[in-house]
């Protein structure tokens, strides 16, 4: 007996550069490009029916939180009509977008798989750090794998990176843990076929919880030795709604933190602190401690939490809650 044919929403948000069969480089920069582009990858239709959806066709550096919201809205709009989603995206900022979708789309009952190709030259340090597999896997291979995964029994926001399917909030950890043999964040492997790891959320009939609000006015301060704190603080925009402080252990003196908290007090804004020491800092009424997360994820979660509430108590609760496996200490402990 024939199985029902799956339908996959193919959402374009950059990262769609590919070589056509006639040798021309094509990509989707506007909705009108979708049809021609899809006709260049007919192999995808062997796996599923595709519903092309255009969101964004600009350059990587112009992707912003408003694009994340548009992506989330399109997933919600098409949620009942398709069995899963594939999102094309440039590898450069795929970690941010993946994290954003993980928070905005909760209680997922079907998969959202991000993948894509690089635009132009990706900086070596980015390649070496995270996206090495993208160098050897072309977009065609990534798309075939991503569309197949979007038909499988999985309901997570994930990134198809070369030979592995990785949870969006654990992209960097999955690369590092591979060397240690820990395998955190890896949801599936591509070897002969695609095999999903045991620990993943399976498909379920649940109502999508849609929480797209986000406040992008979070100013990040990277503490470092020899920093000129007054100068740095004078560059904090007047419309910043929150501060996210990194590198406290490495460089923050008492006076540095005093100056930061003084500014926060003056502006009545919360301070999100990436630090695993200094209890006396954590007791300050403006400080919200962040659990251990990947850098992109912690910034995105901070923006997202600020979009949900301005209450310090509620922000603390949200940061403590492990919504999308982003809390790495909890994940390692599992």
């Amino acid at each position: 007996m024939a199985l029902p044919r799956p339908k996959i929403g193919l959402i374009f948000s950059g990262g769609s550069i590919l070589m056509s069969r006639s040798g021309k480089v094509i990509s989707v920069t506007a909705a009108k490009d979708m049809r021609g582009w899809v006709s260049e990858v007919p192999e995808l239709k062997v796996i599923a029916d595709l519903e092309p959806i255009f969101v964004f066709g600009g350059k990587t550096e112009t992707i912003s939180p408003s694009i994340w919201q548009k992506l989330a809205k399109e997933v919600r709009r098409h949620y009942r009509k398709v069995d899963g989603f594939v999102v094309t995206h440039s590898p450069d900022t795929i970690g941010y977008t993946g994290a954003a979708l993980s928070f905005m789309l909760q209680n997922l009952g079907k998969p959202v798989v991000l993948t894509g190709a690089k635009e132009g030259v990706v900086k070596k340090r980015i390649i070496n750090r995270v996206f090495r597999p993208f160098r050897t896997y072309g977009i065609r291979a990534n798309l075939v794998n991503a569309v197949q995964v979007a038909t499988m029994d999985i309901a997570e926001v994930a990134v198809m990176t070369g030979s592995r399917l990785v949870r969006a909030t654990q992209l960097v950890s999955s690369q590092q843990s591979e060397q240690d043999g820990v395998g955190m964040g890896v949801l599936g492997q591509i070897n002969f076929g695609i095999s999903l790891e045991l620990e993943h959320q399976r498909r379920r009939k649940t109502a999508l919880v849609f929480r797209p609000d986000i406040d992008e006015r979070v100013f990040v301060i990277q503490m470092h030795p020899g920093m000129n704190t007054p100068s740095l603080l004078s560059s904090v925009p007047t419309d910043a709604h929150a501060l996210l402080i990194r590198g406290v252990e490495a460089a923050a003196s008492k006076d540095d933190m005093k100056a930061v908290l003084s500014l926060a007090d003056e502006r009545q804004i919360p301070v999100f602190l990436e630090s695993d020491e200094s209890t006396r800092l954590k007791n300050d009424k403006r400080i919200i401690s962040l659990p251990l997360m990947e850098a992109e994820t912690s910034l995105v979660k901070t923006m997202w939490a600020m979009g949900q509430s301005s209450s310090i108590a509620e922000l603390r609760e949200m940061m403590d809650e492990n919504f999308a496996h982003e809390n790495l200490e909890e994940e390692i402990g599992k």
């Binding site: 050897t136 896997y137 291979a141 197949q148 070369g162 591509i190 076929g193 695609i194």
Partner: peptide, 29 residues
């Protein structure tokens, strides 16, 4: 080599008489 294992293969044979979603995957590849 940082490649898909199937890239190491010279040819494929797919027996697709049963309804199995992986058949489409191998043909797409």
């Amino acid at each position: 080599a940082g490649q898909n294992a199937l890239e190491q293969i010279d040819a494929l044979v797919v027996e697709g008489s049963a309804s199995d979603p992986e058949v489409g995957y191998f043909l797409a590849f």
